[in-house]
Write a protein that binds this DNA or RNA. Structure first.
Lengths: 216, 216
DNA sequence: ACCTGAACACCGTTCAAGT
DNA sequence: ACCTGAACACCGTTCAAGT
């Protein structure tokens, strides 16, 4: 064969099959050789379209991020954060095996990516001091990623917790919706509201102190 | 050589050198062959002491966890959570390259480990409903692990944020201590306090509803 | 420009063999 | 019981060669 008239591979094709492998058999099952064989091609062929395996994973991460909705900030940063986190969480909910990868990337490229992030920018535009905005955005991000790895998954919790003894009549069933993730998110946002208030008053204090020392 | 009179390897020796490699060159640099050569031995020899590489990583994770202080719960769950998180964070602060591994483990063995966790137990003993306790413990855990990966590291944030423009006189310098991590933790705990109150009143409500329908 | 086949330098792990 | 040497079945990646 060597070179067909029309290319049988493309970045999007490779990227989608990579995600499919991750979904089906986990991140550890994603191999350049396996990815290639799934596309009916040799492993080396993939390097005509991606520089290396990491670039493939970048493409997958980017595609997953496409589903994330950063537009809710028009109705306040709380709403924006909640919308963003929920869409991020539900995007990952369909691809739980991809969460570890995003976790690894949030930590690797984290610094630069996190700061130039739209969520961070939106927080700053809503009056968050830059540093605290990074903290807030990162905290929410890790909360989402942690939740998406099923660590707080209600079903698994029920398997392990002696739930029958604590709640013999199953009255807490209504606390399944909203899921644990939403509860944790609410907790964090509630705390962030208080923090923002304090950060602002700290800023005002500093400003007063500054004009006083400038007057002296 | 083949077999020396006294064994030249031991689990603790291997485990400590594994951590040293991770510290020096990152998780990706930890190889059975490299670990062995550092110990002056062949790779196959390691399998006399550990079933596989994963078992070595387990040992490293366990050693890091030894430094974590879960005893602060005697002075209230807020204090306990804070003490635990801070000790966890500072333990990881000396081994930032190990954080990704713990992140991966928190997600893999997560379900079972998280629930039987001492933190979770302590929260339940302080009146948290089991399910919410899992949520709270997991949220704090991921916050710590996220922070430990340097994603919120103040120095890196300053490199990227246009901080000079926002704060030309450097007045916010005092906000470096406490670090972003502590702020995020405070936010979360504040929110958790409110959540616990609501969870308790929800429980009381349910109990009232139950006795009413039992009377009917 | 795009795919192949073969190779390179690695992995984790196994196992008979030595002491 | 513990370590060696060699092997097995994998990796990611490179590269000349084909069309």
């Amino acid at each position: 064969m060597a070179r067909p008239k029309e290319a049988i591979l493309s970045q999007s094709l490779i990227r989608d099959q990579a995600l499919a492998i991750i979904d089906e058999d986990g991140l550890g099952a994603l191999t350049m050789r396996r990815l290639a064989s799934r596309l009916g091609v040799q492993a080396a062929s993939l390097y005509s379209h991606f520089a290396n395996k990491d670039a493939v994973l970048d493409a997958v991460a980017e595609r997953l991020a496409k589903r994330i909705d950063p537009a809710g900030f028009d109705a306040g940063w709380q709403h924006g954060l909640r919308t963003w986190a929920n869409s991020y969480y539900s995007a990952l909910h369909w691809h739980p095996n991809a969460a570890p990868m995003l976790l690894a990337r949030a930590q690797a490229s984290g610094g630069a990516e996190a700061v130039t992030d739209r969520v961070h920018q939106s927080l700053v535009e809503h009056g968050w001091p830059p540093r605290q905005a990074v903290m807030a955005a990162t905290a929410v991000r890790f909360l989402v990623l942690g939740a998406a790895t099923d660590a707080m998954d209600a079903r698994r919790i029920d398997e392990v917790t002696d739930f029958a003894a604590a709640d013999p009549l199953g009255e807490q069933l209504d606390t399944i919706e909203p899921p644990s993730f939403t509860m944790a998110l609410d907790c964090l946002i509630r705390g962030l509201e208080a923090e923002l208030g304090e950060a602002k008053s700290r800023g005002a204090q500093t400003r007063r102190r500054r004009s006083r020392s400038a007057a002296a």
